[in-house]
Nucleic acid binder design. Structure first.
Length: 134
DNA sequence: TAGGCCATCTGGTCCT
DNA sequence: AGGACCAGATGGCCTA
């Protein structure tokens, strides 16, 4: 395939409980309006990739000069989406590991990400105090 | 029903 | 050139 071995990984297999929604109007939909599984992207023919139109963004943040938008095909966009999902998945794994290290009541519902971070800060501060006072 | 949380998409920027 | 990272936008789900 034109997309290489990266797409041999079926990411959705790694996240069986992840609900896949199609909130954006730009997402692919099938004839029933259902979300098209992006993991089948490796089956797409690269020759069908459509380049986005060129256009200019207002101003480059670094140079201040008008800058051309990066051209990205729909195939590349889908690949970037998959990479982003994978990145967020590893971020959530890290949150889960942190959650397990932070004291909480077992009967409580799982800490949210922001709660986990805040509790971790408090916990680390507490443990630091304990160490310094011994 | 409003608000919090989350998953996902997207485009911009940085880095290799 | 392309991947990683990031922040904003959007929509779904859940709970008070």
């Amino acid at each position: 395939t034109a997309t290489g071995s990266y797409f041999d990984v079926d990411f959705m297999e790694m996240m069986p409980n992840t609900s896949v929604t199609a909130p954006m109007e730009t997402q692919s939909t099938d004839c029933n309006g259902l979300y098209q599984d992006l993991t089948s992207i490796h089956e797409l023919d690269i020759s069908t990739a459509r380049l986005n139109d060129f256009c200019t963004s207002p101003v480059s943040a670094s140079s201040g000069k008008p800058k051309r938008k990066r051209v990205i095909s729909s195939i590349q966009r889908q690949a970037a989406n998959i990479r982003e999902r994978k990145r967020m998945f590893s971020l959530n794994e890290a949150f889960d590991r942190l959650r397990r290290k932070v004291p909480s009541f077992a009967y409580e519902k799982s800490l949210s990400r922001i709660e986990t971070l805040r509790l971790a800060i408090v916990y680390i501060s507490f443990m630091t105090d304990v160490l310094e006072n011994n």
